[in-house]
């Protein structure tokens, strides 16, 4: 089937991009003054210890050999070893994955329906008071720094109203209620800008769609307005929206670093942040690669959804 082959081809196309990212990361890491070992050991390492470590990580070998080795190990799924935790990076990522994915997933779950509803409302009431209000709210939403929003939420909700705890994480699969109380503020923090952006997108693409000739056709042929809005316009307006949803994975992953830092959630973002502070670079690179892979998969999935929704896309 054409769609399957298209999907396969798109997934294969991820590989060269990942390869590029790996190379970029390798170059950046080796642009470091000194070497990771000395950075790790601090200013006065015992020479012997340093030499041992350097040899065991292969840092004494020529760069191109190291690069080649690195690629080979990556190909085998080995992301390297963490200096700080003294464990394989892939294990760490695997352990820390759940909170990040849960927060991100919930953010989408909150943002998408709200954004679509408000966006359609704005487009249907184009240039009326309700539309102006939603447009302004949208602008305000994308202009609010999420880290500030998080602080204000903590100040009001936790310190003043004493409603919700401000830090920690419990898996929803273990204790759903406690998990929810811990997740509400992080999800609001991530979803606000998200909702605003998707709403603006929905609204503008709906407005554009509502001007399309085929919408006039539908109206001219007595199709009820509700169906014109939902069936005829939205199906088309969905196309740019789908693309944005995919691209937003990147923003959300970036946001997860901030949110997990502020709300003390032991996820990938937090792992990444800590690894940079600790100069545990193999972890930083591992998380970055993982993030990029997630993003690229997200983009491919939305491309596939796009091809599925729009019959004009030829995927062979």
């Amino acid at each position: 089937m054409g769609l399957l082959r298209y999907a396969f081809r798109r997934f294969v196309q991820i590989i060269p991009v990942l390869f590029g990212i790996v190379t970029l990361m390798f170059v950046m890491m080796h642009a470091l003054p000194g070497d990771p070992v000395r950075l790790y050991l601090g200013t006065e390492p015992g020479q012997e210890l340093a030499d041992d470590l350097i040899a065991s990580y292969g840092f004494d070998r020529p760069l191109h050999e190291q690069y080649f080795d690195y690629l080979v190990r990556l190909g085998q799924g080995d992301l390297g070893q963490s200096f700080v935790y003294n464990r394989p990076v892939s294990d760490l990522i695997w352990e820390r994955m759940e909170p990040t994915l849960v927060v991100m997933g919930l953010s989408y779950l909150v943002a998408l329906p709200m954004a679509i509803g408000l966006g359609i409302y704005g487009a249907a009431r184009h240039n009326e008071a309700g539309d102006h209000a939603s447009r302004f709210a949208g602008l305000a939403g994308i202009s609010t720094p999420n880290f500030w929003l998080a602080l204000m939420l903590i100040y009001v909700v936790t310190y003043h109203l004493e409603l919700l705890p401000a830090s920690g994480y419990t898996s929803p699969f273990i204790d759903p209620v406690e998990s929810l109380t811990l997740l509400i503020m992080p999800v609001i923090t991530l979803a606000t800008a998200q909702t605003a952006l998707l709403m603006r997108m929905t609204r503008s693409s709906m407005i554009e769609e509502l001007r399309a000739d085929y919408i006039e056709t539908a109206r001219a042929y007595g199709i009820p307005e509700r169906k014109v809005l939902i069936r005829h316009s939205f199906r088309n307006a969905l196309l740019p929206l789908v693309t944005i949803v995919g691209l937003q994975v990147s923003t959300l992953l970036g946001g997860s670093v901030i949110v997990e830092e502020i709300f003390a959630i032991p996820g990938l973002g937090r792992l990444f942040f800590d690894s940079l502070i600790d100069q545990d670079y193999s972890v930083a690179v591992g998380v970055t690669l993982f993030f990029s892979t997630l993003f690229l998969i997200g983009v491919v999935l939305t491309d596939i959804a796009y091809a599925y929704i729009d019959p004009r896309i030829k995927y062979d």
Partner: peptide, 16 residues
Amino acid sequence: ISIIFQDAMSALNPVF
């Protein structure tokens, strides 16, 4: 009353 538009390509909904 029904109407036929100039540009049938854009007057027909591409996704149906």
